[in-house]
Design a protein around this nucleic acid. Sequence first.
DNA 1: ACCTGAACACCGTTCAAGT
DNA 2: ACCTGAACACCGTTCAAGT
Lengths: 224, 224
Amino acid sequence: MLNQADHADNEGTGRRAGLDHADVIEGALALVEEGGPEALTMRKLAAELGVTTTTIYWHAGGRDDIVTAVIKLMSQRLAHTPVEGILAPDRVMSAARHVWESALAHPEVTSLAHQHRSTSLLELDLEIVLARELAAAGLRGDSARDALRAILISVGGFLVLGLRDESAIDDEHTSHALWAGIDDPGIDPSTVESLTHPVDLHALFETTVRAVVDHYVPGRESRP
Amino acid sequence: MLNQADHADNEGTGRRAGLDHADVIEGALALVEEGGPEALTMRKLAAELGVTTTTIYWHAGGRDDIVTAVIKLMSQRLAHTPVEGILAPDRVMSAARHVWESALAHPEVTSLAHQHRSTSLLELDLEIVLARELAAAGLRGDSARDALRAILISVGGFLVLGLRDESAIDDEHTSHALWAGIDDPGIDPSTVESLTHPVDLHALFETTVRAVVDHYVPGRESRP
DNA sequence: ACCTGAACACCGTTCAAGT
DNA sequence: ACCTGAACACCGTTCAAGT
């Protein structure tokens, strides 16, 4: 969906296609947001930009470099929503929720980052916000690190399922689909019945991540 | 590493390569365990088995079918280690640890399942063990389901990082590598210093998952 | 400095043909 | 019933060549 008009100001220079590093990365981001990580191929990107794949290599390197640049670009664009709450655990929880929500707002790019093992590159700014709240809660050194990592890992677990649900319309291998075939004498029928239905991820996120936050963050401090 | 001797008992029948559905899946599993998910290609598998790719399709279908079958095979092979502990939360924790440890024992297959969005297919038997312990702890219906999902999601979050570390010798995008470049006035220098070092995942697993377990599982019940 | 065309070494999958 | 060979439509990447 990038067209010549988007970089018309580059025409008339020594360049023939008027292509920029930024143009390549923005085109790549557009491809990912439209068709997911697997839609980002060198040939499709080249076609989108109206050039040959070789031109892409000249401007922005190989696919790996482009993926990294796309993640960095999205990282900058992630909304810096202010943290809410008075008590320290509430504010930490709010920062954790930002990570969760901004990832769900851009599921395709988050999936891309996940596949590329660069989730923390995408989330770094939000991790810093979370770290500040932990510092304000009185956590220092190793205990701050452990709290940060534990919270981010928990959020990450929810993200795996949250992103899964996006594309799982026909999925036969979801946990709740599999439980439909289970009949175990050690488990109550009402429990099995519950397990055949998908869970309310958002509600479960709140209580579970809150439990982790409460375990690591002292509760009585407040913040001006 | 499969050779003709492995299925010599099939020779002399109407078959020419003496190939079986089970042979294909075991060959696929071997490829994955040796070279990771990306080593499982139809051509490599065919070469390993000494046939053409088309033969693979005849016996076991396309790559998707093979991946599913590999995961099911590994699911059956996962050790049924007995749950330990007397108090309910200890036993639930033990069952959760089984999920974590059996996944780490087979990182490549777990990665494959993860990519295929079939983690719960791989872990189903261990999920059932966990569900039994939750039932024994007195949890029924929705509260049993929520506890199970919350615990599995937490374990899943740790798995993402645990599997990451396996292949992260040169990784520039790990969280602790990124924090080395951060200088934020709102965060204590000792905290930043801590964050530049990798975390002890096993220790963090114990305390974090335990916090989740304790939040969902009543603590006073015991089991004969 | 910027861009193209052709090529290489891979993929998954299908189809007609052989025994 | 079981297996092959050739082909199709894709990949990422490189290299010599053009302007």
